[in-house]
Amino acid sequence: AEAEDSPGEQEATSSKPLFAGLSDVSISQDIPIEGEITIPSGTRAQECDSSTLNESIRRTIMRDLKAVGRKFMHVLYPRKSNTLLRDWDLWGPLILCVSLALMLQKSSVEGKRDGGSPEFAEVFVIIWFGAVTITLNSKLLGGNISFFQSLCVLGYCVLPLNIAMLICRLLLLAGQGPINFMIRLFVVLVMFAWSVIASTAFLADCQPPNRKALAVYPVFLFYFVVSWMILTFTP
């Protein structure tokens, strides 16, 4: 796995001093030796960058967190780039989905007894089931995007709505009223548009041109329902 990771880097490092450890290793002549297996265990300083086995746990976690953070930035500032599509992960969607579902919880017992607002499981199911349905729909329409890429994009593009939910909770601390509701409506509408535009920027190009609207409409419906849940939330 190590050899596959960064062949370019290893070519650069396989200069003179690296072969020092090889001198006492005997290899029979008939085995063809590739250039990539020549890295011995002796090179310390360079190896820390490429190996995931030897690095500290903190470094591993930080690297993954950085990748997630970079994707967040891509959603907040959507531009023509396929980073979000190329190396997909589902960590970001999981974090966003769980935080949104937690924020949509009612704090009071009275609210829970009311049974009105969505439960944690309902939010969770709506987001994942909705994303899977939209993905299947775009695959069935003939889109050339892989299943998890589409899930990743749809999950990451919930981020603006998460921000809207945070703002709404803060605004609700100030009490409810018509003006308060108007501000919340405005925030949710803006973030809803942001989500749709961001996900469309990533997903629309994967469809045949005469079917773009058919693929984008379910995305619109999905974010519409999520924003409606956010807007109607009262603690």
């Binding site: 729909n137 695959k139 069935l140 329409l141 003939g142 005469n210 079917r211 773009k212 609207a213 058919l214």
Partner: peptide
Amino acid sequence: TFDYYQSFFDVDTSQV
């Protein structure tokens, strides 16, 4: 197969 179900979604925007 997936292709079988794809044939049910073989429409364009103008057709819908």
